[in-house]
Design a protein around this nucleic acid. Sequence first.
DNA 1: AAATGCATAAATGTATACAATAATTCATGG
DNA 2: CCATGAATTATTGTATACATTTATGCATTT
Lengths: 220, 220
Amino acid sequence: MDGISHSLGQLVFQKIREEILDGTYAKGKELKETAIGEELGVSRTPVREALRQLELEGLITIIPNKGAFVVGFSGQDIRDIYEMRLALEGLCVKRAALSADRVQIERMEEILYLADFHYSKGHMEQMAGLDDKFHGLLYEAGGSKVLEHALKDYHQYLCRARKTSLSNRERAQQSNREHWRILEAVREQNAEKAEEAVRMHIKCAIQNMEISGGREHGQD
Amino acid sequence: MDGISHSLGQLVFQKIREEILDGTYAKGKELKETAIGEELGVSRTPVREALRQLELEGLITIIPNKGAFVVGFSGQDIRDIYEMRLALEGLCVKRAALSADRVQIERMEEILYLADFHYSKGHMEQMAGLDDKFHGLLYEAGGSKVLEHALKDYHQYLCRARKTSLSNRERAQQSNREHWRILEAVREQNAEKAEEAVRMHIKCAIQNMEISGGREHGQD
DNA sequence: AAATGCATAAATGTATACAATAATTCATGG
DNA sequence: CCATGAATTATTGTATACATTTATGCATTT
């Protein structure tokens, strides 16, 4: 949306964050300020700011006077976050069913049509992006800033798990069918049905992860 | 627990955080790095780190090259966070009922006895602290790092609302009774009952806020 | 040969200096 | 008297310098 005008510190933050979330920086790796700074062509100051933010988010641990170490998520953490999403996204979509306006619904519809198109063409990377967008719109439609903020975080945490999952053609198709079902319920302003659809959607995602990509997250 | 050995930046972070959460820094106030630094006797560097963390948490907004402004929570935000707690804490306590060990249960019991004592003496401030501790132990007993992390955040966000609420003697007593009921269910390893008890507890907290302290949060 | 202790090196924590951008003030012109 | 604009001030963004703490390596000792 607004990829512009961020300060260097924010760019460094997002960069390191991505590299942790997609596994480039493995769990336990020490992040040295000077090294990262040199690599990205900036001084230690913005790097430090980024590291402090990452610690707050729980992605790294900073041991005073020692260093910053990647924590990452264990397989159990991933499952836990899915469960939390199950709870919060259910709440969110119930609210969305009651408060979503026509414009929001149309934008979601647009996303799902696009996703169907890309599915038919076999563009799996695009599907992941559209998945992000659809859920983002759903969070927005919930009408709560704090809830939206939390859900976006969780969604990003699961980014890696989701990518491996959606690269599976079958799962991608099913996922979009579930999206349609959610949207249908929202359009009908049927909160119960919407919540149930979301619960189903996330439960399927969990199940799919357990089967296929469960081993890729370096859980101890 | 471990109030020691934090860096200056972390202290500044916690200080500003508190002042936002208990309303010292009102919504819309601009936080200037030099001013805060002088006030706390530190340079801009740790202050900046703190501000970046606060932005990530959503407590302030940083407009690049302009400044940092307190966002704070509206009355609706407070209600939303209570709802989110309702969902997540229900999840957490279900897990706690299945996985809490004897030591954890005894520690919670200890807290509740202490709370009863302080109630009888009319020490209302102490009650608030014990409420924090009890829920903290409950989160720990849930056995999920990420869930614990999230719930602790939400609990802190509601700190101000809770304080005004627990200063009411009646509510304080009822709250502790509800705590006992939760603990009872956990001890019996009755997940359903525990979840129901938590839902009841939080619903009462919401209700109490709506009646008594709802106007104090400057919702627009 | 293993362990201990000191000296050196390296990394973090903080402060200050410099650069760039936004806000303010004051003067000037209509 | 008000509006406009340039100069000044203030504030943020970044880099560098200094202080402190921790890690490392080598010599010495047992």
